[in-house]
Design a binder for these strands. Structure first.
Lengths: 216, 216, 216, 216
DNA sequence: GAATAATCGAGACGGTACGTCTTGTCTTACT
DNA sequence: AGTAAGACAAGACGTACCGTCTCGATTATTC
């Protein structure tokens, strides 16, 4: 997948590429995505909305799917969930992370874009790889690191595979609910963390948590 | 979503709709899906391969996504994972279920189709609802029932929400690995179940863990 | 071209064919022709408008073009111009014939149908043959007979070829003006007859005729 | 003194339209027309044969009938019959003109195209107007001019209407024979001119009519 | 009368073409 | 060289129509 945002030679012959055009294109892509969804995306419409020529779009991105991938990767779609703070209480931290994501996904226009990301990943191996590399694996690693630390601290079963698989289970559950249109509520966040981390949860720590009934 | 396989009035006026044509269309869709993937699906090609006219395709299905949905729902794509046998050992049963799915997804042509299902669900609310209703919610319920039984048996934390969320976490983890192209191996199956069900602790430890948590 | 209006065996087994249906089909064809023109003709619409099934249409007529041909031949389109009365004055008789045709073609809905006849003849050799046989050759013969009689009477140059060619010239001129949308007025009728019969016109006879300025 | 130059295309922005593509489309249309006739014309086939996209066809021509019209107007179909030479003998000149047309129409592939022109004109008012403007009215005017000159020379009845109507009668007779599939022979050409221009009357009769010297 | 058979309206069928839309490339003139 | 505009080849879309086939229902004739 082509990606050369920074010119190799800062001063080269001819007109310099317009970052403004690129930003406008990504913004227009996001708008189109929210308005029409992934399958109705039209490069013509994006270019027109961005006030750019089609060639400019294709100069930056080799294909529509790459454009969508960059739109997501470039932070135009997903806020940063690469950080899982360590407060000492892993369940609290995970809960907050999932709650943050749930809150983010509840903002208008966000769900269509997340589903577009899923659709793009489903359709193209390259996009999937690129998106995994820059987005999901980052979140997965952040969760995994936090879980590993918790394992060392005795809050959870120790071991790298467990941390990795739990991370994937958490992200997967979120993904599943996005695709099935099940709501991502704060209650869901709590219940999810309680469930997947609940097996070895010390009763004391359990008491600390607000149980809040899980939405379906 | 259009769906009228069973005539409401057994004595319709015109020629009866050909179930054979419908079956041929679904079969051709499956073949196309395996060969080219969801985004390259062509109704022209499907109709030609099925020996059907395009109008016949559109008489049965209003859009490509609905066709794919019916292809999956109709059992043309997903073998039956609606059953989770109860051997008494929930971890064993879940492991076997995930292993079976992993093995199924490893068959040639299956992954593209599963990704197509994800893409179709991502693109259309209606298809997502229809697919959830007939496919994923069925698997989810099967897993959930088994987990609930395990909760009653004291093998896992009790409570309906826990069973539901663990089911979604398991399905979600599988979905996540399908979309990210991470391999679904038997080892993955084992590690996933161990992780979300509280590690591979011996039955004694298991008994230790589940004294009946705080409610639900 | 298939044509079996009269059953070979007046009493055969089974239900008798409905002449009412056939008449309704021709009437609906005429209406469609006037409303939409020849190229927009739809057998589906004709059948629906006639309250008939498509098969009934195709039981009577092998194809759309044959239907149009029969519609015209059967008198649903063209009134009878097979008669050229003989008053003794050939110019007067021709003038009246052309005037009658001009008047007929000026009736609402007639021109589209005449043009449809031309289009049908242009597109199909069979239809052209059938239409020539039943319609134009009849008119041509009627004109030709009258002209031949005039030749014998010394009013025009004698000879069969002259009569035939003049007939074709008269019909052709009318056809030309229909296709080019030039108006068919009474003045045109007079001027046409004066022009093509004018070469050997005795001055006395000329004075008898109202010259009336020819519309273009 | 400055002469402000106005470019024909005052700086159009995008790629210039390809006249080559247009020519290829017209050529392919002509070939299709000869091969299959007007009603079997397929824009898909034309585009494929021209090596052009369908959109390019529709960018130039709004509909099939307009394409056919341009094909004819552009000289791809009708050789030039806009000239009627003046040898002094009007019957000779007309005879030659009709003979030339008869010869042209006898060439293989010409008749289907002429009938297509008639069908296109019959089906569309716009096409009829366009075709009359560029093709038939030109021929009509050429004949008319020659006839008017003959009128002034005393070879025929004088008067503009007579010239016009005779022209229309000649073209109409030719059109009639094309649509009815009657052959256009040299004999027909001679007989037609003789008939509409007052028969093959002997020079004496001719002298009677035309006081001016008829000869050369 | 009962059986048989051709017709009827209705409408699905396999095909073909339509005219539109979209993709990714290419070609203009302008900056 | 980069840019906005937009034409280009290719090909899928969803609709319309053709002429055929198949329904259940409706007349007729023949047994």
């Amino acid at each position: 997948m082509h990606q050369s945002r920074v010119p190799v030679h800062p001063s080269r012959r001819g007109r310099t590429r317009s970052e403004a055009a690129r930003a406008a294109i990504l913004q227009a892509t996001r708008d189109e995505l929210i308005a029409n969804g992934y399958d109705k995306l039209s490069v013509d419409r994006i270019a027109a909305a961005a006030g750019a020529g089609k060639q400019t779009v294709y100069r930056w991105y080799p294909a529509k799917s790459a454009l969508v991938a960059d739109c997501i990767i470039g932070g135009y779609l997903l806020a940063d969930f690469a950080e899982v703070p360590d407060s000492g209480d892993v369940r609290l931290d995970l809960r907050n992370w999932v709650r943050a994501f749930a809150g983010y996904s509840g903002q208008p226009g966000t769900s269509p874009v997340l589903r577009a990301a899923a659709a793009a990943a489903a359709e193209s191996d390259e996009v999937a790889a690129r998106m995994y590399e820059h987005v999901t694996s980052v979140a997965e690693a952040a969760l995994s690191d936090r879980l590993r630390a918790a394992g060392h601290a005795g809050q959870l079963p120790d071991g790298s595979p467990v941390a990795t698989l739990l991370s994937q289970a958490i992200i997967g559950a979120v993904l599943y609910r996005i695709l099935t249109r099940l709501p991502l509520t704060a209650d869901f966040a709590d219940a999810l963390v309680n469930s997947v981390c609940g097996g070895s949860q010390p009763p004391a720590a359990s008491a600390q948590l607000a149980p809040g009934p899980a939405g379906r």
